[in-house]
Write a protein that binds this DNA or RNA. Structure first.
Length: 533
RNA sequence: GCGCCCGUGGCUCAAUUGGAUAGAGCAACGGACUACGAAUCCGUAGAUUGGAGGUUCGAAUCCUCUCGGGCGCACCA
């Protein structure tokens, strides 16, 4: 029985009511307020026509006499504060250092088959820093959801068809001609980035026939994207090709499916999806088949998502850039008509701006103004870059100052966390030399810094759950920073290995637990925890 | 014009989704290595949470208005 149930039970026996709402539990800001607290008395005050003070005291009294979970239950101005006992911490630390850390995390799912689709940048050029943010966040969320029990697959949707590809090929063709000294202009809407010059050189060298140019450039760029992602520590479970999707007949099938539901009509030579008839709130209808006979991006994307569900995913998260937000509503609408809207959610990752000398610079792949992930990784460490992207809310804009990133790579917070880990491993090595092994911590919990650090370690399982639930990696990075800070502070006050073997054993248990948590947390974020630095 | 996201110390970000005195890191200033790693620690200073109303026991968080910044509103993807 968890804390929530215990409190609910206490409310029942104190006031004879069934409290069905969630019991708000939070970690108090001050240590004297205990290990966990609830403000439920405030909520009950109105309903019971009594003051929070009176109510909280009654519940606390009831809890103190009935629950074995707590050493003490106190009240403070209407708040009810719970204090855990020594056995709670002993068991926790013991479990962590004996390799049971993963089992302490509450499972949010029992193997539900789900997918996260991320990056999915068009294969028309090198990955930029915007995709890098998506790559860092997506790959970490895959790990974290896996930890709380989901069966997660990460997928990259490759837009290797349609207009953009045509423009890419024409741009490349123009670059080849230019290199051969012929006059040729890159189409206005085409890709003007210099990177195409390198590809053009290779194409000339390899003597790629003109009718194979499109396939050739797509596979070259796709390979380079895969290579870059690998360098960034990102590996996808699957890659889905838009071109194959188009030729598979799935789009056609989708349209006839929608047609059966009377959501399709023809106008001006195009075929439309009747969004407005499905939802009066919708502003407009959307084209499925253009008047030139080509499928629209929207049509193919619906077919793609339908295919995901037909592959058995019960939930699908897409990580999209802010420029896609207009796409969310209509996708949900289309999926609703097919019966899948609740199984789909989009995570809108806010944009990354490149900042130079305090001014934002526009990023455009077509104009070729971009900072590539490869360039970035040439300047700073993969781990530093990942941490940089992960230590922020997804909804927050990110002003990326390469100058600053370069500078910060030497004083980046990620090293603070890594250093805490390396320091503990160093202590562990010394303990090994002295023949000291982990032992009981019970006699040390009276030391304030020791208790504080133990409490911080105890938060970890809940931090993972919150990170997974909110799909926000910064919750985990922030926690790791706080844990590292608490450890460094502890380290300066208390020596772990001393002549007192019993005390040393207990101290060692706690710091080893800290190291295990750091290692585990960093691993979930795709970052290495070094033994030495 | 309509819709969505963001405004928190000089800078970059938090605040467990409405809870206790708004917290950290950079940068600034002053201190700490003769025992486990100084990539560290301790201290000082710095905030009318863009602004104005409202909702209630309680607001950075919710509602209305307003001011800035960004992004959408295609037979582009």
């Amino acid at each position: 029985m968890g804390i929530e149930d215990v409190v609910r039970e206490a409310i029942r026996s104190s006031f004879g009511i069934d409290y069905k709402e969630a019991i708000p539990l939070s970690r108090p800001k001050k240590p004297e307020f205990g290990d966990m607290s609830t403000s439920v008395a405030f909520q009950l005050a109105k309903r019971l026509g009594s003051s929070p003070n009176v109510i909280s005291e009654k519940i606390a009294k009831e809890l103190a006499s009935t629950s074995e979970l707590f050493e003490r239950v106190t009240t403070q101005g209407g708040y009810i504060n719970f204090h855990f006992g020594k056995t709670f911490f002993s068991k926790l630390i013991g479990d962590i250092i004996s390799g049971k850390l993963a089992s302490l995390v509450r499972r949010l799912s029992d193997g539900e088959f789900v997918q996260i689709e991320y990056v999915s940048a068009n294969p028309t050029g090198p990955l930029n820093v915007v995709s890098a943010r998506a790559a860092a966040v997506g790959s970490s969320l895959v790990n974290i959801l896996r930890r709380v029990g989901y069966d997660v697959k990460g997928e990259y949707y490759l837009n290797d068809a349609g207009n953009q590809v045509r423009l890419l090929t024409e741009s490349l063709r123009a670059r080849i001609k230019q290199l051969k000294g012929e006059r040729a202009d890159i189409p206005d809407e085409g890709y003007h980035g210099e990177y195409l010059l390198d590809y053009a050189r290779d194409a000339i060298e390899e003597n790629v026939p003109d009718d194979r140019l499109s396939d050739w450039i797509l596979s070259r760029i796709t390979d380079d994207i895969k290579e870059t992602l690998k360098r960034f520590g990102v590996c996808f479970d699957s890659w889905v090709s838009e071109r194959e999707l188009r030729s598979s007949g799935r789009v056609e099938k989708l349209i006839s499916e929608l047609d059966k539901k009377h959501l399709v009509y023809e106008k001006d030579g195009a075929i439309w999806f009747a969004a407005t008839s499905l939802d009066p709130e919708s502003e407009q209808d959307y084209v499925l088949v253009k008047s030139d006979g080509e499928y629209s991006y929207f049509a193919v994307d619906i077919a793609y998502h339908l295919d995901k569900f037909q592959r058995g995913f019960s939930h699908v998260w897409d990580i999209w850039g802010p420029d896609h937000h207009g796409h969310i509503k209509r996708m949900q609408l289309a999926l609703r008509s097919l019966g899948y809207d609740r199984a789909f959610s989009a995570i809108l990752l806010q944009q990354v701006n490149i900042v130079e000398e305090g001014k934002r610079r526009k990023m455009s792949k077509r104009r070729g103004e971009l900072v590539t992930l490869n360039e970035l990784l040439g300047e700073i460490d993969t781990d530093v870059a990942r941490f940089f992207f992960l230590d922020r809310r997804v909804g927050a804009h990110l002003d990326f100052d390469l100058e600053l990133a370069r500078k910060e790579s030497e004083e980046n917070p990620v090293y603070y966390v890594k250093y805490a880990h390396a320091r503990i491993r160093s202590i562990e090595r010394l303990a090994g030399l002295r023949g000291i092994t982990p032992g009981s911590i019970e006699n040390l919990l009276g030391i304030p810094e020791f208790l504080h650090l133990a409490r911080r370690v105890a938060e970890y399982p809940d931090v993972i759950v919150r990170t997974a639930r909110e799909l926000e990696t910064h919750i985990l990075t922030d926690y790791l920073l706080a844990l590292s800070r608490d450890f460094h502070h502890f380290y300066h006050i208390h020596r772990v290995i001393t002549g007192d073997r019993e005390r040393s054993s207990g101290m060692l248990s706690l710091v080893l637990a800290v190291a295990e948590v750091i290692k585990d947390g960093l691993a979930l974020l795709g970052i290495e925890a070094p033994e030495r630095m």
